[in-house]
Design a protein around this nucleic acid. Structure first.
Lengths: 128, 128
DNA sequence: ATGCACCTTGTAGTGGCTACAAGGTCAAGC
DNA sequence: GCTTGACCTTGTAGCCACTACAAGGTGCAT
């Protein structure tokens, strides 16, 4: 499988895959006679793993850890749980922030009387 | 007021203020005899405006527009309302995404039986 | 005069990609 | 066999909004 096919199968782009390789998240795959990267099912699975984790908001560093943990199935799952739990708390924090922010924005927009900027509540709020 | 004092009053850092100046968000202030930036209440108000807008999640580009709109108080408030409304919708979208993500993470973490990585639900979910 | 906090400029790095440019490879069609 | 066009290669630079230095200047207290 060439890089474009792998990209289509995983909802990424060739550029992103090469970026993952550059940063060590993916290993260098074998090459075809024409120097094209040649991927198999192992790489596909690994990239799917990475994409799922990234879509769940894990950072590249966390993905790196999760990958190396998943490589050793006999290990305790504590470290995995810890990474996921910390990330969950972080997501909760962000949700809280975003909800507060939404409330403020909502008020601002609701209070706007669509008149002149001089009396605009939005500008007023921003100006303090 | 020197840059450090302005930073403390606005919850920023000197680096950020200089960055805003570099990118044209803030004008170059007058200098003291010793070549230190010398800020007055106008700059303080402008920086507060910027910080409030940034804290509400507006991008630098949006802040730039909001600033120039607020500079002309006779104009219609429509453009301001539009920027804020678009941003509100964007925040709503992000909230939705984050809530979905939280649910998935929550399930993953709840299902983890704290055993070995080989049976870890978290790794399983990520592996597909 | 010495120390120390603060300031100056300039440059480079962060994360996670994304966007080129300039050229090489390969299968299909004529 | 030759061209077209999709794909691939490497390398470099850009995005956003900062953040982190380094190397040196200023200003005030002791």
């Amino acid at each position: 499988m060439k890089i474009g096919a792998l990209a289509r199968k995983t909802g990424t782009t060739a550029e992103t895959i090469r970026y993952y390789e550059r940063t060590g998240l993916l290993e260098e795959p074998p090459r075809t006679a024409g120097n094209y990267r040649d991927y198999g099912p192992t790489e596909l699975a690994r990239l799917r793993f990475i994409r799922r984790a990234r879509d769940l908001g894990f950072t590249m560093a966390e993905v790196r850890q999760l990958l190396s943990l998943s490589d050793d199935p006999s290990q305790s799952c504590e470290a995995v749980d810890s990474i996921a739990s910390i990330h969950l708390r972080e997501v909760d924090r962000k949700l809280g922030d975003l909800r507060k922010l939404r409330t403020e924005l909502r008020h601002m927009v609701d209070d706007c009387q669509h008149g002149a900027v001089g009396e605009c509540r939005i500008i007023e709020v921003l100006s303090g």
